[in-house]
Amino acid sequence: MADFIQLLVAGLATGGIYALVAIGFTLLWQTSQTINFAQGEFVMLPAFFMLGAMSVLGLPFWGAVVVGILVAALVLGVLFKRLVVDPMLHHGVLPLAIATMALSLFLKEAVKDFYSAEAQPFPPLAADVNVSFLGAAVSLQSLIVVAIAIGAVVALQLFLNNTQTGRRMQATAQNPTVARILGIPVERMILLAFVINAVLAALASALVTPIYLAKFSNGEYLGIAAFIAAIVGGFNQVRGAILGGLLLGVVDNFAAAYLSAQYRAAIPLVLLIVVILFRPQGLLGRVEERTV
């Protein structure tokens, strides 16, 4: 039983990160049909902004986190939208998806060439303390990760449902043409989605880097994991991304412990195929209209 709890909690902590990154995926998809293959690198990079803020500007850790998030919002939110997404928005999903693939290579190689190939230590958010929980040892850090991830998601939901801007964003996602007629500044709403995505990614970056270490290749698996989480949960639903993320983290751990370690990466994929075949809109997703 203790083992079960152990695996569950560890899985939830990892899954919380996947969820944070997956939410951004769904936001971009809903508002602009962007499939961002550089999403993993969007999590890898802000940690380097934060390290830079500490070493160059001499900021304390929390100050550096704030600066890192702001720079990410600007670079990975606004600039990304303006320079890469905008020119390609009306040319279909694929050219943009490929451009983000190139962007992912660019970010990885640039960090490796101009910063370092070596993994850089990153200060932890909390002291390395373990808490005993139903017989399982749980690190405080994992609990904080889960708490912040869930907190961020709840805040986002509240924002989307209970503020005027949030509802305008939803309207934009559902039908940009009608939204425009209703006088909603659609462009600004889409931009906002990109900024939120960048902020969530930067937040995830601050949460995972103490465990992952700051390294140029961090995004490789994270991006794919978040992608799978988004699909399993429902590509067009923020709530779905959370479920997908948490499920993926937990399933991965249980698969490694109880099924096959060599095929641990396969189990989430099988789950993915099953979900797509029997519930293509995702566990919590809504059915999408087909274009005819």
Binding site: W29, G92, Q174, N175, N236, E288, E289
Partner: peptide, 10 residues
């Protein structure tokens, strides 16, 4: 290929 997917949320 025209935009391959044109998702509209129902």
């Amino acid at each position: 290929a025209a935009p391959v997917t044109q998702a509209k949320v129902a």
